[in-house]
């Protein structure tokens, strides 16, 4: 009973984090801040949801897979965020240098 309550709380909070992350994606002004919202907030939300789902899972392989998915999502998000910001910084540099010349 208590566990169920805890689980639904975890999932709800995770969903709320997703909502906030999406809000940040829509409302933030430029690429770095948007990526900040996406990678940090959404991954925390995903982690909470995975944590909330874990007690209901029957077998160990599935537990392992879910944690693996979370880790992969974190890795992919940080990598993608890194690449996007790098590309963004490159285009920013080009703009300022063309403005100066």
């Amino acid at each position: 009973m208590l566990i169920d309550l805890l689980r639904s709380l975890l999932i709800l909070v995770g969903a709320a984090f997703f909502l906030v992350g999406t809000l940040g994606l829509l409302r933030f002004p430029d690429a770095p801040t948007r990526i900040h919202a996406l990678t940090k907030v959404d991954n925390l939300g995903l982690g909470l949801i995975v944590l909330g789902l874990l007690p209901g899972v029957a077998s160990w392989p599935v537990v392992f897979k879910m944690i693996l998915i979370w880790l992969l999502a974190i890795a992919a998000a940080s990598l993608a965020g890194h690449l996007v910001v790098q590309a963004w910084a490159g285009s920013q540099n080009k703009e300022t240098s063309s403005r100066d010349s």
Partner: peptide, 15 residues
């Protein structure tokens, strides 16, 4: 592209 990508690919590709 970036050293981070290269390092990550070593893990990602076998996976």
């Amino acid at each position: 592209l970036s050293p981070l990508l290269q390092k990550m690919l070593v893990w990602l590709l076998p996976l």
